[in-house]
């Protein structure tokens, strides 16, 4: 379980996030809406532990451990992972090697890559010249290999063409244990739902991801403040019709 209490965050001396309270329980996936520059990515980077995002106030707890000031790799070890919107290129480091790092060499990178039509990229330098959609598939593959309990997605649909959207969407649903139930399960569906442990926090602009991932809760981040928690589809609809500013009025 992720618990964020009264969080205030600065980047280069400027306050980006304030009064943030957020709880994600095992099995839950939350959607984060918000206009550009509202602090969505900053919130994800703060949860992941990027040192330039300085926590001035408040506390982040994950799985009972206070991680407010823990380094990135310790958070990763505790089970937090992230799918980046614009990850850096690392020259000379092959995608296959990064997958090995993610999975601590417990999986067959080739096999896993096949599930996302990504075998051809395994021997290319990570993120070097990748298109928007290729970056997303690479990021998903890394998360899949890492298999963390809490997954942070920064705009997983951006730059993805329609053809690949279904692949991205269903993969996210699958790794978050939110895929649509199939017949012939050994366990009753309801019990499987109860046993889910994966947590997700997804930033979206387009809302496409909602077609694939049945999210539990939506929230709007506006000017660094979380507002308007509720049904993600309703919130998305409200934003679509009235805009962010109108939509967050209810709570401000």
């Amino acid at each position: 379980m992720l618990i964020i209490e009264d969080l205030q965050v600065e980047l280069a001396g400027r306050t980006l996030l304030k009064d943030i309270d957020l709880q994600i329980r095992p099995g839950e996936t939350h959607i984060l809406f918000g206009p550009n520059g509202s602090g969505k990515t900053s919130l994800l980077m703060t949860i992941m532990g990027y040192p330039q995002y300085v926590v001035k106030k408040g506390k982040i707890t994950f799985g009972g451990t206070d991680i407010t000031h823990a380094p990135i790799n310790e958070r990763a070890a505790l089970g937090i992972g992230m799918s980046y919107q614009r990850p850096p290129t690392i020259n000379g480091l092959k995608t296959r090697q990064v997958l090995d790092i993610c999975a601590k060499r417990t999986i067959d990178a080739g096999e896993m890559a096949r599930s996302l039509n990504f075998e051809d990229f395994l021997d290319r330098d990570i993120n070097a010249g990748f298109s928007g959609g290729e970056i997303k598939r690479s990021e998903l593959l890394q998360l899949k290999a890492q298999n963390p309990d809490l997954m942070l997605f920064d705009e997983p649909e951006s730059g993805v063409d329609i053809e690949n959207m279904a692949l991205i969407g269903t993969t996210i649903a699958q790794i978050l244990e939110k895929e649509s139930p199939r017949a012939g399960n050994t366990k009753p569906v309801a019990r499987k739902w109860k046993e889910r442990t994966k947590m997700g926090l997804i930033i979206t602009h387009t809302g496409y991801i909602l077609d694939y991932v049945p999210a539990d809760k939506g929230q709007v981040l506006f000017n660094g403040v979380l507002a308007c928690a509720g049904n993600p589809r309703e919130i998305f609809q409200c934003i679509g019709q009235l805009g962010y500013e109108e939509c967050v009025k209810c709570t401000l």
Binding site: P71, I72, P88, C102, K104, Q142
Partner: peptide, 15 residues
Amino acid sequence: AEEEINYLMSRGISQ
């Protein structure tokens, strides 16, 4: 690049 180090640390390895 700090960004590259952080990226890999978020995949679970030390600095």
